[in-house]
Design a protein around this nucleic acid. Structure first.
Lengths: 338, 338
DNA sequence: AAAAATAATGAAATGGTTTTCAGAAAAGGT
DNA sequence: ACCTTTTCTGAAAACCATTTCATTATTTTT
């Protein structure tokens, strides 16, 4: 049907092998023949058949990404920069949306294995034995992004959740002797777990008891943040500040305050987590932990490419930088001291 | 290396062909043998080699999506639902982010052609002769999503921009005899062009001259909306309402108003376009044209699957439904009439 | 000028499926 | 019992590139 290497070979008057060599930049072909072949390729508009090549070489130039919800505004940047980084090295991306469901993750892993992807990035914050076992069994270079995983032989890129939560806690203790927390799911969310550890650390350091009523659970969505705020205010009448484990939940919470005439930051300060794009434009704009989704993407993909090229890797765990950005949703420290 | 069909055939004591038939659900194999083969497959944990299959059949079960910026919050829903729809029919997705750049688009099209994708969706609002010619030449079923394209033989799924803009205009004329417009790029943005047509239609209908100073250009980003609003207020001191061609720009504009003490909706009403998720949670929440990104994704992918299966297609142009959603950023009509 | 080393090329095997064609076995019809 | 279908199975070709090995042509060394 379409033109293949044989056609090129015939037109150029050389053998198949020679054409292949030219295409793969082998240096054992003379300039003259290389020129002839290239001319023939152009003339026929020949394009290599990647399926055939993949069959022979077992290399597809495909990287699989299994993501926990492409509609998560933080992850979109991550995904985008992963793709950009991959394409630089001539890899295409196959994306599968797991919605954070283990079953979906396993399904996609299996599928991508059949598709013979050269590498795999799994974006998830939930780890189960089953998932880890599966990853081990497929024998494909794999990176876990966005969630920290303990096993030392598994590569992971993630934000330092404990430290970031400590930073926020430190900041919020400036305003009051305790603060409310809108955390992520209790179930399987390592990110939430770790952020809670950071919070606990600081409560302990300050010698304040971290009471259950300070904590409300959400699922990282706008909606759940609204509800969590509602619960928090119902259970506490002396709340001066809130730490929300995602910007989306923080924006939901802000909206709750607005609907209930609670002034931000005069009455309550709110700090989020992620620094999604809209955080600068909400009213009030949102104080938050800025973790670069782009950095997460770039670092993950770079690490994966190393892994795929069998480069020696000194560090299987990488952290993405973060910093606390103060905007209008929380009092600045200056304001307080004065 | 890995176990292949031959191994299965040997273990099951049948021929290669038979194994292949079992795998492909051919009905010309007896129950007994089918059972033996399936048992062998399970025992060896055999997985088909998709590269080999693709080479032979020219079918990859891969759909390419070339998108104009995965970090656009409206498109993330689209992408997500495209993926969901594809996976139902066992297609995986290769995603390439073109950022709306023609050069990138051409690059990806070529790449995906080599990867032998079975179908292609191009998400773009800019059409050039070059792009169209390229799409024609590759001979792969292709859908244009999110931008309307005139050529009757090219399939496209898009929101009815003209009608939607008319709806918004109708609504805004309730408040005042003219309104400001934050439009998208002048260059190559068919969506912007069409929305302007809708606006013009209504201005004409109302016998109002659509003056240049009512119009300000943005690039659909938050930032550009902020600046466009600034320009609009500088050039007009009697502005009662604004129609922004994207929610992101609208949110930027709202932020500008807030920074400059302009009350919304008391002094100015603002209506956006897209209904991105955060629109319900901003303060004030955003009136907007709700076009379902999910619907766009589902319809595009369904149409593509039809095209790929050579099903007869009666309609090469499909519209995604839209509706005007009134929230806090604009006066309700009741408020006005009273 | 002969021997040795190097460079350039081609033939053929290989990767793992699907599919056509032909043949064997079983079922059906008289 | 014999012939005709029908059902099932296997051998072999095809898909298209890469790569090993062998061979020829060219250059270098002595």
């Amino acid at each position: 049907m379409s033109v293949n290497m044989k056609d090129v070979a015939e037109l150029a008057g050389v053998s198949l092998s020679t054409v292949s060599r030219v295409i793969n930049d082998s240096n054992l072909v003379s300039n003259d023949t290389a020129y002839k072949v290239k001319k023939a390729i152009k003339e026929l508009d020949y394009q290599i058949n990647e399926s055939a090549r993949a069959l022979r070489t077992n290399i597809t130039n495909l990287v699989g990404i299994i993501g926990a919800g492409m509609d998560n505004p933080f992850l979109t940047k991550t995904l985008k920069s992963m793709e950009a980084e991959a394409i630089k090295e001539n890899y295409n991306i196959i994306y599968g949306d797991s919605d954070g469901e283990l079953e979906q993750e396993l399904y996609y892993i299996n599928m991508l294995k059949q598709k013979k992807v050269d590498g795999l990035i799994i974006i998830t914050a939930k780890f189960s034995e089953e998932l880890i076992e599966m990853v081990r069994s497929i024998q494909i270079p794999t990176i876990f992004a966005s969630g920290y995983i303990k096993n030392p032989d598994l590569a992971a890129v993630t934000v330092n959740n404990v430290k970031a939560a400590e930073d926020v806690s430190d900041y919020l203790f400036n305003f009051s002797d305790h603060f409310g927390i809108i955390r992520g799911p209790y179930k399987d969310s390592v990110a939430s777990e770790e952020r809670m550890i950071g919070v606990s650390n600081k409560y302990r350091e300050k010698n304040v008891k971290l009471k259950k009523k300070y904590i409300s659970e959400g699922d990282f969505s706008y909606e759940s943040g609204y509800k969590a705020a509602q619960k928090l205010f119902k259970n506490n009448n002396d709340l001066k500040s809130i730490f929300s484990f995602s910007d989306q939940m923080a924006i939901g919470a802000i909206r709750y305050c607005y609907d209930n005439n609670i002034q931000i930051p005069e009455e309550v300060s709110i700090v989020g987590f992620d620094d999604i794009e809209v955080a600068r434009f909400t009213k009030p704009s949102l104080s938050t932990i800025s973790q670069s989704g782009a950095e997460l993407g770039v670092k993950s993909m770079k690490l994966l490419l190393k892994l795929m090229n069998n480069e020696s890797i000194t560090n299987y765990k990488e952290f993405v930088s973060h910093k606390l950005v103060i905007r209008e949703s929380s009092k600045s420290i200056n304001t307080i001291k004065s």
